[in-house]
Design a protein around this nucleic acid. Structure first.
Length: 542
RNA sequence: GCGCCAGUAGCUCAAUUGGAUAGAGCAACAGCCUUCUAAGCUGUAGGUUAAUGGUUCGAGUCCAUUCUGGCGUACCA
């Protein structure tokens, strides 16, 4: 519907100067009396034209070549809204489109063949993924899905660091546990990694090597094996959520191939860095930041900013036109530095989009569980999947805006899992499969011959909703908002359940029945496609 | 102190980016299965959108100030 109106307005802009280079925004009014679609363009224009909005609206309508077989009525309402009422025939046309496009219904090619990368999770291999990582993982993967649906060519990447202080601590932690297993009475310091998984890794090492490793440094085999084991674990967890990365990028490779060094040189040559008190500083104040930041400590060790900038440069060099980074809110102070650094070298940092998601609060029995990987009093993502299943996990993380804190009550999620909205959607999908089985037995076949019979309000509401799907996916993708898809699907499923309660297929006149079959098949396709984007399964039976 | 995010029904969250009468789901109450899946549907109740002021035809949305919560604010990542 919006597409059709877009074209009408485009044509009208040839005649009305002020419509040029201005895209009318259409939306679906809350109240049905205000039409199927409405635009506020006349009111927006009234400011700059200094004319009465209703007058402008009249002028616009007069210049729209509306097809009376599509549009029933156009009216001006309120302060200057233009409301469009569509004919049922036009509305029901969407079914043919859906049936035709099937699995691709909802896709668009606005960003066709543009290279995009979504970088997410990017947790260092120091322990199992937490619920917080889960939100990052699910949202990141879903954003990647959405981008694919609107045309992008998407790569999923995981950036990690297997060097540095954290990893040394990991190796030391494993070594201490190993020595303990060998009977040595050693204190385990509080600031070491406390998790059980460290003991498991230590036990494996003991089993394989006996006491041969007592003189090995923590930084050697202990670190390497720990890293390998933990990474294997992380991948396993990601697999359970059906998340696969195209590439794992090791921060260390930036040192090995000399990128860090040459970046430092470039900064110096361009005079955007300087030395002070034995450290190298980046002149971020020139880039509009509040203060300059250290990129190489006086010890000679770079801070995270340097490799982060170098890493992002590789993204540009690899030809990505859109780079989405997904971080938890604890990183919200770091990315402006990285973007400013890129900018200082002439890269278009507008192409780097940073999505910050707020924390996940876990409550259990009403109490908030504070989480820290090191202290190991966290609930792992794996445990969460064990409790509620991958579909619920994916849906739960996707159903809320990333700017909101997510409250995940474990007990509640278990207790009310039957009433979780994800089941509501899946139920609609399964219900349709079930109906189709029955109608098949009744020798009723899908037909698009008499779609004009679909005039019941329940049917028209569904049809109008279907019209909005493609646009919804586009909007959600452009804004990296996964919850839009979830909201849309809940609304569509609700409309279907209402239809189900009100309109019967078996027992209706054959022509109507067969048109209704076309309708529900279309609904099923839309739900399935939406769930696919969210990474949730669409069961045939429940 | 400063920066980012949030504050909407008893609870968890939406609200097409400034639009028309702020919507769902839980929880509560009252109904609907001899008929395509009751994991469903229908109805009732629930709100000064944290507070105050401002911007305009129009504010939950934008601006200012204040209050509350989360995360930051390193030569940690």
């Amino acid at each position: 519907m919006k597409n059709y109106l877009d074209k009408l307005f485009e044509k009208a802009s040839l005649k009305l100067e002020y419509l040029k280079n201005r895209k009318a925004i259409f939306n679906v009014p809350n109240q049905k009396e205000n039409g199927d679609i409405s635009t506020n363009i006349a009111m927006i224009l009234s400011k700059e034209l200094k004319k009465n909005p209703r007058q402008i609206a009249e002028e616009i309508i007069a210049n729209l070549e509306t097809d009376s077989s599509f549009i029933d009525k156009t009216e001006i309402a309120g302060p200057g809204f233009i409301n469009f009422f569509f004919k049922p025939d036009f509305t029901s046309n969407i079914i043919k489109e859906v049936l035709n496009e099937k699995d691709s219904f909802g896709k668009s090619d606005k960003y066709k063949n543009i290279k995009a990368m979504v970088e997410f999770v990017s947790a260092n291999p120091t322990g199992p993924l937490t619920v917080g990582h889960g939100r990052n993982a699910v949202v990141g993967d879903t954003i990647a899905n959405m981008l694919e649906w609107i045309g992008y060519n998407v790569d999923r990447e995981y950036y990690f660091n297997n060097a540095g202080r954290q990893m040394r601590m990991l190796g030391e932690s494993t070594k201490l546990r190993y020595l303990q297993l060998l009977g040595q009475n050693i204190d385990f310091p509080e600031d070491y990694y406390q998790g059980e998984y460290i003991k498991d890794i230590a036990a494996k090492l003991k089993e394989e090597y006996g006491d041969k490793l007592v003189n090995e440094p923590g930084d050697g085999i202990f670190k390497d094996v720990s890293e390998k084991e933990i990474f294997a674990d992380i991948e396993k967890t990601m697999n359970r959520l059906n998340i696969k990365f195209d590439n794992y990028f090791n921060e260390n490779s930036l040192y090995e191939d000399g990128r860090i060094k040459s970046l430092l040189n470039t900064f110096q040559e361009r005079k955007v860095s300087y030395e002070k008190e034995g450290a190298v500083w980046l002149k971020l104040t020139d880039m509009g930041q509040e203060q300059d930041k250290v990129i190489v400590k006086s010890t000679g060790e770079p801070t995270y900013r340097l490799p982060d900038i170098a890493y992002h440069i590789t993204k540009f060099e690899r030809g990505y036109d859109l780079m989405v980074d997904l971080f938890g809110s604890d990183h919200n102070a770091t990315y402006p530095d990285v973007k400013a650094g890129l900018r200082s070298l002439g890269y278009d940092d507008e192409k780097v989009k940073v999505v910050i998601h707020q924390f996940v609060t876990i409550t259990e029995k009403g109490e908030i569980v504070k989480m820290s990987t090191r202290k190991a009093n966290f609930i792992t993502l794996d445990e969460l999947i064990d409790e509620v299943g991958p579909d619920v996990v994916r849906y739960f993380f996707n159903m809320r805006g990333v700017t909101s804190h997510l409250n995940f009550d474990i007990a509640l999620a278990k207790k009310h899992s039957d009433e979780n909205p994800v089941f509501y959607l899946q139920y609609a999908h399964a219900r349709i499969s079930s109906i189709l089985k029955m109608t098949d037995e009744q020798k009723l076949n899908l037909s698009t011959e008499n779609l004009n019979l679909l005039v019941a309000p329940e049917e028209q509401d569904i049809l109008k909703k279907l019209h909005a799907f493609r646009e919804e996916v586009l909007y959600a993708g452009e804004n990296f908002e996964t919850h839009r898809i979830a909201n849309y699907l809940e609304e569509l499923a609700a409309l279907f359940h209402k239809f189900y309660a009100q309109c019967r297929i078996i027992g209706s006149d054959k022509k109507l029945a067969e048109a209704r079959i076309a309708l529900i098949v279309a609904v099923q396709i839309a739900i399935r496609n939406g769930l696919k984007i969210l990474g949730v399964t669409a069961p045939e039976k429940m």
